[in-house]
Design a protein around this nucleic acid. Structure first.
Lengths: 157, 157
DNA sequence: CGATATAGTTAGGCTGCCTGTCTAATATAG
DNA sequence: CTATATTAGACAGGCAGCCTAACTATATCG
């Protein structure tokens, strides 16, 4: 079918994906700064993604985010210093601490979600809804294609 | 037009892209290990991408890769220790050193390229050539849409 | 009660980047 | 031919973002 005897070596997908990743990350950082949260970095998303509005424990958040308690504790400490979260003793367990959002933190989460929604809307308008959906689908298929454990044993040593 | 009054909140593209990025990176790491280069890490790609077969200087490589000379020097030192590159004094400039591939390094580059080609071929067969091309195009459009300063998005912040 | 599990802390390590400063060598201006 | 950049790279040190190991304090189970 193809009439072209020689395809110029397409840029490896991994490079393109890296660029997109960086672009999206930088865009979020820019938006955070613009929204008045210059201290909020990409790492902190591990907190936002694992801390429900009603609060949670550090261990639970770490497990949810897939990082160690120590790492999560440090990130949470950062965000406490920045006034994004509050850390209180858990009244039901003397060992535990409860992390929850401050007012400012809630505003930050809201702005972040807002920006994500804006970006999605912007992309939908630039690419078209259908093509954005197709992009999502394609990316999902790429992950599936690369997944090292579909035909494989999950108990990989 | 749409009959669905409520769309479930689609996973933010940034999350999906992160996953794909990680999947591709991990896949490369796995391939490197499988090919007998377990020491080669994702960072080292900065070298492979900036070191032509005929060799180059550290500063040139650093500039090409967009990192500092110091960082590049360190990565190059790693790869020298691992027998991937050789470092010789530049005969034409007493200050400079010439970095070049060892035999093993050339094999490593070759295997890496081979794996990238394999993955592209695999994706082409899973997604279809046209859809893979469309994926690449969509990703490019996303970058363009996010590029800060081409036409800026006033909705940020 | 004692053994064990769990929440979090402390201490320290590694990678992957950075800035700042220094040397030696080269290039250039006078 | 010197005097002064400029350049290549090295050395020192720092920061972020993760990790493991070992520890304390509390909780829970038998």
């Amino acid at each position: 079918m193809s009439m072209t005897p020689r395809v110029p070596p397409a840029r490896p997908l991994i490079g393109v994906v890296e660029d997109v990743h960086r672009a999206l990350r930088d865009d979020m950082a820019r938006a955070a700064t613009a929204a008045g949260f210059p201290e909020v970095r990409a790492t902190h998303d591990a907190v936002f993604a694992s801390l429900p509005a009603e609060g949670a424990r550090i261990s639970a958040m770490a497990a949810e985010a897939g990082i160690t308690k120590q790492s999560m504790a440090e990130i949470v400490r950062d965000l406490e210093r920045d006034g994004i979260v509050r850390i209180d003793p858990d009244p039901t367990d003397g060992r535990a601490k409860l992390v929850s959002y401050t007012e400012r933190g809630l505003r930050c989460v809201h702005e972040g979600q807002q920006h994500i929604d804006d970006v999605e809307a912007q992309l939908a308008s630039v690419l078209g809804k259908k093509r954005l959906a197709e992009l999502r689908r394609l990316l999902g298929e790429v992950i599936d294609a690369l997944a090292p454990g579909l035909d494989n044993d999950p108990a990989v040593g």
